[in-house]
Structure formats: C-alpha cells, structure tokens
Amino acid sequence: NMECRVCGDKASGFHYGVHACEGCKGFFRRTIRMKLEYEKCERSCKIQKKNRNKCQYCRFQKCLALGMSHNAIRF
C-alpha cells in the first residue's frame, strides 16, 4: 500500500516516475499537456490530501521536486 509522494493520499501506481494518486497524476498530466502556468507562490505550501487543490503552484513545484517527469515512462 503506497502513499502518494505529492499529497499523501493512496497511490494508484507509479506515474511519471513517482508513486502518485489519480488526482496528482491527472494534475501533473494536465499541467504539462496544456502548458499551464500557475501564479507564483513564495509560501512553500504544505501539500496534503485535504488541501492539495488550494495552491497549484506549490503542488506542481512539489511534483517537479520529487522527480515527476513527462519522460519517465516505464519499460
């Protein structure tokens, strides 16, 4: 039983190089595919399941810091 490295929810698998839940997987995919840019935040918000949708900037930064990558495809 793995935990999502981004928000701590139950991970659904290994997505983009990191154990992640469906919510964070979809969030990362949409951000990359649609080339979304979020308003910069300096607060280093703590991303948890209950508040993961509050600060998209910090959520995406955490995805990147954990090594999530669009190129991380498993063979």
Rank of each mutant, 00 (worst) to 15 (best):
G23C: 14
F28M: 08
N51H: 10
K35N: 13
K50A: 13
C41H: 05
I32L: 10
M34G: 11
F27E: 01
F60H: 04
C4N: 02
E22K: 06
N1V: 09
K35H: 08
L64W: 02
D9Q: 05
Y57D: 06
R30M: 08
N71P: 14
C45D: 00
E22D: 09
A65T: 10
C58S: 01
G13F: 01
N51P: 06
Q61D: 02
H19V: 10
T31S: 11
N71I: 05
C24P: 00
R74E: 15
M2S: 06
G23T: 08
C4D: 00
H15S: 09
E42N: 06
R52S: 12
V18Y: 03
S12E: 09
E37F: 07
S69Y: 07
H19K: 11
I47C: 04
K40F: 13
Y57H: 08
K10H: 11
N71A: 11
C45V: 01
R5A: 15
C24R: 01
N71E: 15
G67Q: 03
S69M: 13
I47K: 04
M68F: 04
I73L: 14
N51M: 11
M68P: 03
N1F: 13
L36R: 07
K25E: 15
R59C: 04
Y16R: 04
D9I: 06
M2R: 05
E3S: 11
A65E: 12
K46V: 13
N53E: 14
C41I: 00
A11T: 09
R43Y: 15
F28P: 05
K46T: 13
R59P: 00
R74V: 12
V6M: 03
H70W: 08
R5W: 09
T31W: 03
C7P: 02
M2P: 03
K50C: 08
K62A: 11
S69L: 11
V6T: 00
A20L: 09
F28C: 01
A72I: 06
E39R: 07
N53F: 10
A20N: 07
Q56Y: 09
L36Q: 07
K46S: 12
G23I: 07
R29Q: 15
V6D: 01
T31I: 04
F14D: 13
F27I: 00
F60M: 10
A65C: 06
C45R: 02
R59F: 11
R43A: 10
H19N: 13
R52F: 08
Y16T: 06
F28T: 00
K46G: 08
H15F: 12
K54C: 11
K10N: 10
N1D: 11
C7W: 00
G8K: 04
K46W: 08
I73S: 14
T31C: 02
R33M: 14
C4H: 04
K62T: 07
C24Y: 02
G67L: 01
I47Q: 08
T31E: 00
Q61L: 05
G67E: 04
R30F: 07
R30S: 10
E37C: 12
Q56C: 12
L66H: 05
K54Q: 12
H70L: 12
F60S: 04
E39M: 08
C7R: 01
Q56E: 14
L36I: 15
Q56S: 12
F60R: 01
N1C: 05
G13R: 05
I47H: 03
R30E: 14
C7K: 03
G17P: 04
K49M: 10
G26S: 12
Y38N: 02
L36M: 11
V18R: 03
R52M: 10
F60Y: 07
E39L: 07
R74P: 15
C63W: 01
F14N: 10
Q61M: 10
R59V: 04
F75G: 15
E3I: 11
G26P: 00
I47Y: 05
K25H: 08
S69E: 13
R33P: 00
E3T: 09
C58V: 00
G26D: 14
E22Y: 05
C4A: 02
K40P: 09
C24A: 03
C21E: 01
R29P: 00
K25L: 14
S44R: 11
K49V: 13
G13P: 05
A11V: 06
I32P: 01
C24W: 02
C4G: 00
F27R: 02
V6R: 01
C7I: 01
K10C: 06
L64C: 08
K40E: 09
G23Q: 12
A20K: 02
Y57C: 06
C41Q: 04
K54M: 13
R5M: 14
S44I: 07
